[in-house]
């Protein structure tokens, strides 16, 4: 083997090795890109999910706060409190003699109808079966007689 042919062979090997290295590098880079994209997506999903959970917790807390505030408002508006406060401010219950009703001429308040007057349907008397054979025959005989008398009258 000549010096030149040995040089060519080495050059080809080096070329093949360089191509292999380039291909492997490309695969690694593509892999890294795919991995990075997957990681970013997973991170985003996880973060979003976490945020959603936090928002859900926040909503639940606001709802609980709301319920609590509703109870507090009702407590502050409860009659014993209101009456105590009114008494502190100098109010007192009015007596019947202190009430004056003013009649405005022509005023007509249309009260919604709240007094229904449905009459319950009376229960029909329960039918009692007390017919005897003699009674039934008598009934049939009476019917025939009635038909004959109708026919005669015609």
């Amino acid at each position: 083997m000549t010096y030149h042919s040995r040089l060519d062979r080495r050059r080809r090997i080096q070329q093949n090795q360089a191509q292999l290295a380039a291909t492997l590098t490309l695969i690694v880079v593509v892999g890294i890109i795919i991995a990075a994209l997957y990681l970013i997506q997973t991170t985003t999903t996880t973060t979003t999910k976490r945020e959603l959970e936090e928002m859900s917790d926040h909503r639940a807390r606001l709802q609980r706060d709301n319920e609590r505030l509703r109870a507090e408002i009702a407590d502050l508006q409860s009659l014993p409190r209101v009456m105590t406060r009114a008494a502190e401010m100098g109010f007192r219950p009015a007596s019947e003699e202190e009430i004056q009703y003013l009649i405005v001429d022509g005023y007509r308040y249309n009260r919604p109808q709240v007094t229904p007057t449905p009459t319950p349907t009376p229960n029909a008397p329960e039918e009692i079966y007390d017919e005897t054979l003699g009674g039934w025959l008598q009934k049939q005989w009476d019917k025939i007689k009635e038909q004959f008398s109708d026919w005669r009258n015609e």
């Binding site: 219950p93 007596s95 019947e96 009703y101 005023y107 007509r108 308040y109 249309n110």
Partner: peptide, 27 residues
């Protein structure tokens, strides 16, 4: 005594006047 005030039930005479002019006594 206190119910008539709280429920705004007018005395009979006032109620009659309201009814006479076509109104309803119970607001």
């Amino acid at each position: 005594d206190r119910l008539v005030v709280l429920m705004e039930i007018p005395p009979d005479a006032v109620r009659s006047q309201l009814v006479a002019q076509g109104g309803d006594p119970f607001d």
